[in-house]
Design a protein around this nucleic acid. Structure first.
Lengths: 172, 172
DNA sequence: CTTTAGTTATTGATGAATCAATAACTAAAG
DNA sequence: CTTTAGTTATTGATTCATCAATAACTAAAG
């Protein structure tokens, strides 16, 4: 046919991929599923992303980038920092649940390029958090950062596997 | 051909499955890989486990059962409980790393029977931990249990994605 | 304006590979 | 011979990825 597009096809595909990957996981998502969600044909996906893997990594990068940006936009110091960061993450999770799911999925994908992206993403988040906690003068930084990240990831998992009992109730 | 076995084939297959699944993940593991590891032919696997999924669930159940057993064998009260439980888990992780990996893998497998097994496994661990913490008279139980589980899972992830920097160094 | 040449957007068809699962068979033990 | 333990051969389904064809648009030429 012709050119019904108009918008940014590449972006549309990324968005579609994000949705489908988040729901079905990496391996159970076919390029046909993504194409369908994006309203295009399956082979056309490959005009924009050389491989399914490349598309997944693009989506995963977006997820990690947004977390980092969210933390960077937290403007608080000292005592309030941790609380504000948790609030920011909670808001992000509500606004972009698919990106949260993608993080969880990335962890157990064994393809090496994806593994690398996951390592880099997690590593960056830890580094940045450590820096902020340190600057805020928090005691016992390393341990506090680990606990902070651990609780965050457990939240993601609790959401992804649909097991809300996994986290304590009065945690907003 | 004949009957080279002698031992418990079903158990051997489970063990082989545990190893291969832990290393390659659920979807990248083929029944041929498992068969090879177990030293038998690919179709023979199906004599003992109706489906690949059934075999994975058997392996996953074993992993969760062992964690629960490990915690049940922790004999400590009050102040020492948490410390002892962490020690026990550390030991378990060293002794059965494949089972730790399997836990992580189970989380992002979307097949519903596997999802159910994962939910049940995590849920049981939380319930039991909660009970123990409560009996030990720990303050703010819910929150402490969440943190305990969160840190444990982050350890698993850190091991599985090979990113040791993810956890604080002087932990163990 | 209106051809015409060229480009961009998109699809249908399909190849090659992989895999779980089944069926049919064989050989040893008792 | 018949049960047990195991194999080889095979299949049907799926899926990523390629490619040739085509529809729709743009811009230059007359």
């Amino acid at each position: 046919m012709g050119r019904p597009s108009g918008g940014n096809r590449k972006e549309e595909i990324l968005e579609a991929g994000l949705e489908v990957f988040a729901k079905k996981g990496y391996y159970n998502t076919t390029t046909a599923h993504i194409a369908e969600k994006a309203g295009i044909s399956q082979p056309y996906v490959f005009r924009f992303y050389k491989t399914k893997e490349e598309l997944f990594i693009a989506a995963l990068d977006r997820a990690f980038d947004r977390i980092l940006d969210t933390f960077k936009n937290v403007d608080a110091s000292g005592e309030q920092l941790v609380e504000k960061m948790i609030d920011a993450y909670d808001k992000l999770s509500e606004l972009h649940p698919n990106e949260i799911a993608l993080q969880v999925i990335g962890i157990s994908v064994t393809e090496s390029a994806i593994r690398n992206a996951t390592q880099k993403g997690l590593s960056n988040i830890r580094s940045y958090t450590l820096e902020r906690f340190r600057d805020a003068g928090i005691e016992n930084v390393e341990r506090e950062v680990t606990t902070f990240l651990a609780r965050g990831i457990l939240c993601n998992i609790s959401y992804f596997v649909d097991l809300p009992e996994l986290i304590d109730t009065k945690n907003k």
